[in-house]
Design a binder for these strands. Structure first.
Length: 257
DNA sequence: ATGGTCGAGTATCGA
């Protein structure tokens, strides 16, 4: 089972690239973030034509998350599960796909350390933990995929010194990832490639992509039963190239029997 | 050394 995640930075702007990618990457499940559209305009029919059922949680021109699956979609939860209070942003959606409870997350950016946005980000990560408990806890086969806006370790940024004092790398943010690991999840890509300095996001500006100035902030966190069966993982840098790319590349893991 | 681009919408803001 191939489980993928991709922050598309507007699905309207990226639809042709997403269709192309589904065609050659053949994921069983694809989590999308930053669709930047309301539910009313989500292209369920186009994805159905490619063999994918889909669920979407979006309210307007910002945020927006979705799950596409060709192995079934059931038990969909929009936002955080009850009784967790969801905020007005549409940043999380969950659904059971082929026996795996899949969650697509777009974690708040944080903007500046110690700003209200930063506190909101940390609070949001706390709610995500409660959400995963509500879905059944670490004993459930679960994949939590998305743009975490957190680089788990120094090796996940092109130059740790360049991020001094910035968000995405602070101990409090990294503690949120560590809490997920202590709860029972494994960073799927990192477990397959313990040493590789590969990134999933590059700012559009300044030729950052070609200069390899990136960050690995798009993660597929999986519970133990899946973690023990990971047989491959990939960041598809080719999908960051060419005409009208997203600033993020898709990432996937393969779960084998 | 700084900033360099996109996508939202159509002036700027957010990333």
């Amino acid at each position: 089972m191939r489980i993928a995640t991709w922050n598309v930075n507007s699905l309207k702007a990226r639809m042709a690239r997403v269709e192309e990618w589904l065609g050659y990457a053949q994921p069983d499940v694809l989590c999308l973030q930053e669709t930047k559209m309301p539910d009313a305009t989500f292209p369920h029919l186009a994805f159905a034509g490619l063999g994918y059922e889909s669920v979407h949680h979006g309210s307007g021109q910002w945020n927006g998350v979705a799950i596409l699956s060709r192995v079934g979609i059931e038990d969909t939860v929009l936002g955080f599960a009850e009784p967790i209070v969801s905020d007005r942003d549409t940043r999380v959606i969950s659904a059971r796909c082929g026996g795996v409870y899949v969650t697509s997350v777009y974690v708040p950016n944080g903007r500046e350390v110690d700003s209200e946005h930063y506190e909101y980000k940390l609070e949001w990560m706390g709610k995500l933990g409660a959400h995963l408990d509500a879905l059944g806890g670490p004993g459930v086969e679960m994949a939590v995929c998305g743009d975490y806006n957190i680089a788990p370790a120094d090796m996940d940024v092109w130059d740790p010194a360049a991020f001094a004092g910035a968000t995405h790398v602070t101990p409090r943010e990294r503690d949120a990832i560590r809490s997920m690991e202590q709860w029972g999840m494994v960073d799927g890509f990192r477990s397959v490639y313990p040493e590789e300095r590969l990134y999933s996001y590059w700012d559009y500006r300044a030729g950052n992509f070609h200069e390899h100035r990136g960050m690995r902030i798009d993660l597929i966190m999986v519970t133990a039963s899946l973690a023990g069966r990971l047989c491959w993982a990939l960041v598809d840098r080719n999908a960051r190239k060419g005409k009208q790319p997203s600033d993020h590349a898709p990432v996937f893991v393969d779960v084998c029997d």
